[in-house]
């Protein structure tokens, strides 16, 4: 029995959520006494491959077949399942990222496995039955899921487990999978990546603004604040509906769910549908000129006042802190 962790990459480098998955798999290895193998699919630079060792995993399977240089969930799922069978893995860990969501159920079907999607805790192991928690009802509840099948697939929610370092040396084994043509029928035509920006789902800090900002021209200060903090920017739904900001930035029930360490909400009222996407953030700061704004009820820190007055001061204060 072994544990297999699939590490996602973009443009040749592993994602932060991928290292979190490695560290999580290592922690399960420590709980079960099973060896952990990491799997990389696609073209990943050698430095990144060595980097896996930082998180305590020494065995790396590298699949670098030309046909698999771009992500196709059907083909990647086939590879993950094939490698899992080869090493007799009974636990498969991956990230519950956009791509991971497309992969996890497919891998589970191929391996007759139980699937814990959106895991937010390590498993509690009771023999063959594992208990794992996930968020449900758009952040309004936490569900405990019991996995009873012998093979288990766990999709870890990004940003819930910190990647902890445990340096070890890496042995890389190259593997040639048997991928069929039907698995490769999806063709990637174009990838548009905003490389200079921090992807919202992975961000540690998110600066978000709502209709209180009055118009798109006022987002310069929001971007500047995000820059100072190394944060991603987000917005409420009406803001993206109005075209003030791109749809990718919309968080909430019908947008993206995020769980950063710090969520700063500026000029957002805190409607229940908005909270659904942000309430699992570790710390919430609310800036609103209405002391009755519902968002204050779920905030850790708040400032009652005009965003146009406060945000520039906040930028200065964070700059001063950074230079300190």
């Amino acid at each position: 029995m072994a544990i297999l962790v699939y590490i996602e990459n973009t443009a040749g480098a592993f994602k932060k959520s991928g290292y979190e998955a490695v560290s999580y798999a290592k922690a399960i290895g420590d709980l079960t006494g099973q060896p952990v193998h990491a799997l990389s699919i696609g073209k990943v630079d050698p430095v990144s491959l060595q980097h896996i060792g930082r998180y305590g995993v020494s065995k790396v399977v590298e699949v670098n077949t030309e046909q698999l240089h771009q992500f196709v969930n059907q083909a990647y799922a086939a590879v993950i399942a094939e490698v899992a069978k080869n090493i007799q893995a009974t636990t498969i860990v991956l990230s519950n990222s956009f791509s991971g969501k497309g992969l996890a159920p497919r891998v589970a079907v191929k391996l007759d496995a139980a699937l814990a999607d959106g895991a937010i805790t390590l498993p509690t192991i009771k023999g063959d039955t594992w208990e794992i928690k996930k968020s449900a009802f758009s952040g309004k509840a936490i569900a405990t899921q019991e996995l009873t099948a012998p093979v288990k697939v766990i999709a870890l929610t990004p940003n819930t487990m910190e990647a902890t370092e445990a340096q070890t040396t890496v042995e890389i084994e190259t593997f040639q999978p048997s991928v069929s043509a039907t698995d490769l029928s999806t063709i990637i035509k174009d990838i548009v990546q905003a490389t200079d920006k921090i992807p919202l789902p992975e961000a540690n800090i998110v600066v978000s603004a709502g209709r209180g900002l009055k118009g798109p021209e006022n987002w310069r200060m929001i971007e500047e604040l995000a820059d100072v903090l190394g944060a991603a920017t987000a917005c409420s739904k009406p803001v993206s509906d109005a075209g003030w900001r791109p749809h990718e930035e919309h968080v909430g029930q019908t947008g993206l769910a995020v769980s950063p360490n710090l969520y700063i909400a500026i000029g957002i009222s805190g409607a229940i549908q908005h909270l659904a996407g942000v309430s699992s953030s570790k710390t919430i700061v609310v800036i609103n000129n209405d002391p009755e704004a519902p968002f204050f009820k779920v905030a850790d820190y708040g400032i009652v006042g005009d965003a146009f007055d406060i945000v520039p001061k906040l930028i200065d204060a964070f700059k001063a802190y950074k230079n300190h």
Binding site: A143, E146, I303, A320
Partner: peptide, 25 residues
């Protein structure tokens, strides 16, 4: 292959700490 055994409501956050708008530091 699996089942949900029970639910918890997320722990309530403590009361919000308000910071004066003239004392951003």
């Amino acid at each position: 292959l699996s089942q949900i055994t029970h639910y918890d409501t997320p722990p309530p956050r403590g009361n919000v700490k308000l910071v004066d708008k003239d004392d951003i530091a």
